[in-house]
Design a protein around this nucleic acid. Structure first.
Lengths: 217, 217
DNA sequence: ATTATTGGATAGTACAGCTAGCCAATCACT
DNA sequence: AGTGATTGGCTAGCTGTACTATCCAATAAT
């Protein structure tokens, strides 16, 4: 398969494929001569994965590179690959060195995690992300305690336990299992987010009774 | 309150406040002379709201402007304001005019919504977003039927019904209620997303047993 | 009277994610 | 063998987003 066919098969324009090659997202094809390289099914799969992480997961290119490096590193355990994906998903949060409100939000976060009995790395960036959410809620005068978030936490855990673990194909190759894990993390997150907004719209339609809900673009 | 005090009170740098004024995100202060304007508590609140939508909700400036315009339009019902926020949250999805796989994903979406009995505007962008998620899952060979997403849908609906409706202060002014509605949409979405990733990490730690889950930055 | 601050305007920056153009080598076809 | 198209590799340019920086004249504070 040459680059033009790879482009046709994946729907990704040739210049973009070249860009991904330069950026190290896509492994080089097998060189058959100075001006020819052969790409395979694996490249098509990899491109699909890249586009999923980019378009659905909204990960920046640099983060995708790290995730893919972890996927490809055969020495990494499932848990570490998942951790890498989580790192990639967590946005950089500027540090608040001496901000008291920040520390309060952060300890509220740690308390909630402890109460739930969850096993979370002490320095996981996800902790900071949750603290940022709690801080934002409290600044805006909305309920921002761990208690208020507990129903979300419990629902999240139930979904993860009952519907995400089951879909990981442990019986296939490591690469397939690890890819499914990473994609699942990212895409199921968006699925849940979209469904929640749909549930909101439906509830709002019933509560407020409007039939047309289409603001101008 | 002068601009420097507004900056100090909100933590937003003066040039950025000027930028938000130019972009129409922040209403102008009350002019007291040619080179002086007075800002109030409302401006501080508005800045907090902007930062919440920007940093937690990750909405682009242009989308925030639309949402705020809807919040400020007293003639709009709750339902329409929420609809505007949903429009703002949904990313532009390129249209797939004659893509058969796309149409299949789209009808799978519509089928799921119909089966759930949800009231969703036929042209809501959220439908396209869900179709994109389903399409991505199916392309990657993961379960992508409406059935597979049903548990997510049901959990989402339960959370919305039992924990989001209740936190909206209908007893206060319209502006407060509407702001809480918009913020809740955006911030609770992120809260749920973060908690889901935490639940994943905890589950992964138990399943795969590792104690250190900190990949290199 | 002097120094600082303000609003208003214009221009510049930094980053992300492509996109375009060029070139010599080489391939496919006649 | 000749001819046009394609390829990989390279460098440069483009578009959009969210700010920053600078300048200025008017005014306020001391």
């Amino acid at each position: 398969m040459r680059i033009s066919q790879l482009s046709a098969a994946s729907g990704v324009p040739i210049p973009t494929i070249k860009y991904y090659l330069r950026e190290g997202l896509l492994p080089a094809g097998e060189q058959t001569s100075a001006t020819r390289a052969e790409y395979g099914e694996r490249h098509v799969r990899r491109l699909r994965l890249i586009r999923a992480l980019l378009e659905v997961g909204r990960l920046p290119i640099a983060a995708i590179r790290k995730v893919l490096a972890a996927v490809d590193d055969e020495t990494l355990s499932m848990h570490l690959v998942l951790g890498t994906a989580h790192y990639a998903l967590a946005p950089e949060i500027e540090s608040h060195p001496d901000d008291e409100a920040w520390h309060e939000a952060r300890s509220e976060t740690d308390r909630l995690i402890a109460e739930l009995g969850w096993r979370i790395a002490p320095r996981a960036p996800t902790r900071d992300e949750l603290a940022q959410v709690i801080l934002t809620l409290s600044r805006l005068g909305l309920p921002a305690t761990g208690e208020a978030l507990r129903p979300y936490a419990e629902a999240a855990m139930e979904l993860v336990m009952e519907h995400e673990i089951g879909t990981i194909p442990f019986d296939r190759t490591r690469e397939e299992a690890v890819e499914a894990l990473v994609v699942g993390t990212v895409v199921h997150g968006r699925a849940l987010d979209v469904l929640r907004r749909l549930a909101q719209e439906s509830t709002s339609a019933q509560l407020f009774g409007a039939s047309a809900a289409s603001p101008e673009e």
